[in-house]
């Protein structure tokens, strides 16, 4: 299957995202720094529009060496996309749910050529219209 140009990396914020319908297949393309990731816009929970949700850092429990908690803090390194249907979160880099890593987004092949993002839609179409 041919790879389709979506946009330039610079068209996306950092972190940034664009969700497009490629011949009936909805694909979310994410930018973190110079890295680009793409997933099907279908949540493994109940097929919600996961890629159209909020992007927020992973929340962590700040447990010190003495094993006491100083509450919750945002991760400085991990960004999640959050399904707007029920709040399942997924690491944008790996597509995995933070608690249950067996629950993950379906990856779509992507590459950057000369600053342009290309995606290779999955076949057969996973989200036909």
């Amino acid at each position: 299957m041919s790879e389709i140009r979506v946009c330039a990396v610079s068209d996306l914020g950092d972190p940034g995202r664009k969700v497009v319908d490629v011949n009936g297949q909805e694909i979310g393309i994410f930018r973190l720094g110079e890295e680009v990731f793409a997933y099907l816009n279908s949540c493994p929970h109940l097929d919600g529009p996961v890629c159209q949700g909020k992007i927020l850092p992973l929340a962590l429990e700040a447990v010190g060496e003495d094993l006491t908690s100083s509450g919750r803090v945002f991760s400085k390194t991990q960004m999640n996309v959050i399904c707007p249907w029920h709040g399942f979160e997924f690491d944008i880099r790996t597509g995995e749910h933070p608690t249950n890593k067996r629950i993950k987004l379906r990856k779509v092949k992507t590459q950057v050529v000369d600053g342009e993002i290309f995606v290779a839609p999955l076949r057969p179409r996973a989200t036909p219209l």
Partner: peptide
């Protein structure tokens, strides 16, 4: 094969708010 211009313009889906 890289397809510089998609055959049909890609429909964009906005963030759910």
């Amino acid at each position: 094969m890289l397809e510089r211009v998609p055959k049909k313009p890609l429909r964009e889906l906005p963030e759910i708010t």
